[in-house]
Amino acid sequence: MKDMRIAPAGDRALLIQLEQVISEEVNDRVHGLMKAIEDARIRGVEEMIPSYSSLLVFYDPGQIGYAGLKGEVMGLYSLAAEHTSAPKRLLHIPCCYGSHFGLDMRDMETLTGLSREEIISIHSGTDYRIYMLGFLPGFVYLGGLDERIKAPRLRTPRVAIPRGSVGIGGAQTGVYPLKSPGGWRIIGATPVEFYDPHREEPVLCRAGDVIRFEPVSACDFYDIRQMMLKGQYEIRITEAADGD
């Protein structure tokens, strides 16, 4: 059981910690373990929150005790490796860079010393793994931002960043699923709803998916938005290449 620690998170949850690093390999193991626990249909397990290198498992102590669940998880840990090779979904996310959506595009040019075209080509030329979701409904924590377009957060966060805004904060990039305060530098926006509480699947992405931003014009943005609102638009989902 090297590299794994199990501890109680109160009387209704248990935290499984793998090696505490941010790496694709460890994150794959988190998702593999989650899948193994789901498949095992352990009595009393209610839901799980996967994160970069940990998995929080909620359970009903009326159905299984801490020691019992810990034992089950340890038994599944060795099997979990088999699940890591599962193919990943690649979500193609239209994004209108700059225009009136990219509130901080000009600052980004100054900060990085790159032209807008270069920033767009670098940002859209990388596939980003979703390590976890959190902070807001449907907010994705993405890994893989190119060093050249890293940028510090705003000194004073904005009170309201529009829904769908695509931004850069330090070494991270992501999408604001709802209007929210925030300090990331905004370079564009997607017409796609990352979160819609009334949709059958309220949240678009799952931890473990891969995202690719595809540049579209402002015209296309509004066309897609219209179709989206009529329920006529579906994003393209393909299979991610190995070793994303």
Partner: peptide, 11 residues
């Protein structure tokens, strides 16, 4: 500071 992980009621 830790690497972000899940939170329970009462953490």
């Amino acid at each position: 500071d830790i690497i972000s992980d899940g939170i329970a009621f009462g953490s």
